[in-house]
């Protein structure tokens, strides 16, 4: 297993595009976390009456325990960045035809896919650890107090965030294997949310209750939007078993479809 991961990393480690995209992703993550307060101030200036209804400085955006879910959800938006990297990594293998040479050299098709999946796992894990660290640092800076164990409420969103990233990367990997062209795959990846949105909006009238089972919806449901709580609305601030189960099933299916396609096609 470790050997397969090493093989895939060997392909990436000297690939400049990989470092640029990863660098941009993590840079945006840190910048995004640091600029949340400024964003609120900007909102207060631009929107008339925003500051009157809610006192900006009293919003505990970066306070423990709010920070956990706030940051996990925000970082979830940026997973598209690494997903694009995953698409480039898999479609390169088809355009350079190196997947063919890998198989000729003695990698089985399953092993090839597993090597890509292992990289996805690693990227998800690194991403989770990084977001967690950013949360800890910003939390320590802004939080007036840290009361144990209340301060840890919502920390379960980090494993959920890990699954969110891995599920989405699996989706990107599957699209890459199915389409084999980087441009086409990236466009479809970007549009997949819109496509799903259109279907979701229309199907709810016919089959009620089916919406949470949609693939991208299930990935988004892992860490729900937290910010509505500052407008005194009820939000879900815990991880549900159901959302995990649905996302896990989809993650399995994405990788399985990629496997089926690789297995039966001539490369």
């Amino acid at each position: 297993m470790l050997h397969l991961l090493k093989i895939d990393l060997k392909k990436l480690i000297d690939y400049r595009t990989f470092w640029i995209i990863c660098g941009l992703y993590f840079f945006t993550l840190i910048l995004g976390a640091a600029s949340g307060m400024e964003f609120l101030k900007w909102l207060g200036r631009t929107i008339e009456g925003f500051g009157q209804n809610i006192n900006i400085n009293r919003i505990p955006l970066y306070h423990f325990p709010d920070i956990w879910q706030n940051l996990a959800w925000s970082a979830g938006l940026l997973k598209l960045g690494i997903a694009i990297m995953v698409v480039i990594s898999i479609t390169n293998e088809f355009t350079y035809r190196t997947i063919r040479q890998n198989v000729i050299d003695g990698l089985s098709r399953e092993q090839f896919l597993i090597s890509k999946m292992l990289t996805n796992l690693l990227l998800s894990a690194v991403s989770m650890v990084l977001v967690f660290l950013i949360a800890v640092v910003t939390g320590l800076i802004y939080s007036p107090v840290f009361d144990y164990p209340y301060g840890f409420t919502g920390i379960a969103f980090y494993p959920a965030y890990f699954l969110e990233v891995f599920a989405f990367l699996s989706f990107a990997l599957m699209l890459g294997v199915l389409l084999q062209r980087s441009g086409l795959t990236i466009v479809l990846l970007l549009n997949s949310y819109l496509i799903e949105l259109i279907i979701k909006e229309n199907i709810d009238n016919y089959i009620p209750g089916v919406v949470p089972f949609f693939p991208l919806e299930s990935i988004m449901n892992l860490v729900p939007l937290p910010f509505a709580r500052y407008a005194f609305q009820e939000i879900r601030d815990y991880v549900t078993f159901g959302s995990i189960a649905i996302a896990l099933v989809w993650t399995f299916l994405f990788n399985y479809f990629a496997y089926l396609k690789l297995k039966k096609s001539d490369i």
Partner: peptide, 14 residues
């Protein structure tokens, strides 16, 4: 068939 962005040496290492 090789990875164009890798050197000959790195390609062979892979």
């Amino acid at each position: 068939i090789f990875y164009p962005y890798l050197s000959g040496q790195k390609n062979l290492e892979l």
